[in-house]
Design a binder for these strands. Sequence first.
DNA 1: CTAGGGTTAGGC
DNA 2: GCCTAACCCTAG
Length: 287
Amino acid sequence: MGAPKQKWTSEEEEALRRGVLKHGAGKWRTIQKDPEFSPVLSSRSNIDLKDKWRNLSFSASGLGSRDKLRVPRPKAPSSSPSPSPQLLLLSAPNNVAEASPPEDCEKSPQDDKTPSPKYSSMILEALDELKEPNGSEVATICNFIEQRHEVQPNFRRLLCAKLRRLIGVNKVEKIDKSYKLTDSYAKRALAPMKDPSLKKKDSAKSSKAAKGVGQLSPALDAAEAAAMKVADAEAKSHLANEHMMEVERIGKMAEETESLLELASELYERCSRGEALTILQVAHREF
DNA sequence: CTAGGGTTAGGC
DNA sequence: GCCTAACCCTAG
């Protein structure tokens, strides 16, 4: 037990960033062997680099809360070594994502639902609604939650950690690769019509099938049906509303993307003309 | 060799 | 108690 955890030094982190800029993300072995970085990264394996980069990328978008400055992954690095990007080196040893320019501050914080880390309840809700007898896979749960809530890009990973926690407290059980609510927790939490232990007079809505069908007066029956329809309509309108908001949100994203594209073109043009720009100028649009 | 899921230690 | 960062394992 000599080295329980080896925290990354800023030099190592820096070398990694530069390595990624130079070789591209995914070329971990190459970066690790590059004579430029190998002295610094000698104690790190290529896997370490990968893991660290994963953390860096995620936390950059998660904690920044502003637009993420994720380093773009070069999709086709082989043929087209783009001329200018070196000028944008975000490798300054000091903070990079720290510069908070007075730009749009009211765009992204579109808290639709629950941006707060109440992931546990979201997961429980998902498992509850999915009701898959054999459990739900992580991907399924992830999709489900993403549809109802805004989640951060690293949500999937958080989800795994979270699921483990829930297993630890016996709220969730793992079946092969899938997860589901434990029986005990499901009963306690949703105490629905199927639970025999509590025979409370269920609300009019759900008791239809379970209760004696022949007993109720036709009027009550009709009222019941009407109530259900109202509830249904309400649910649908709620859904529609949600979709509207989603559309709106996507629209805003498109807007942002467009302006970013504009910015990029501008930068590219300037840089190809030989103008040198500092990251600070870029951040403040002073160019 | 890389990507991604999973595990665990440490910090708040 | 929860979250994150570092570490581990394995499929492709």
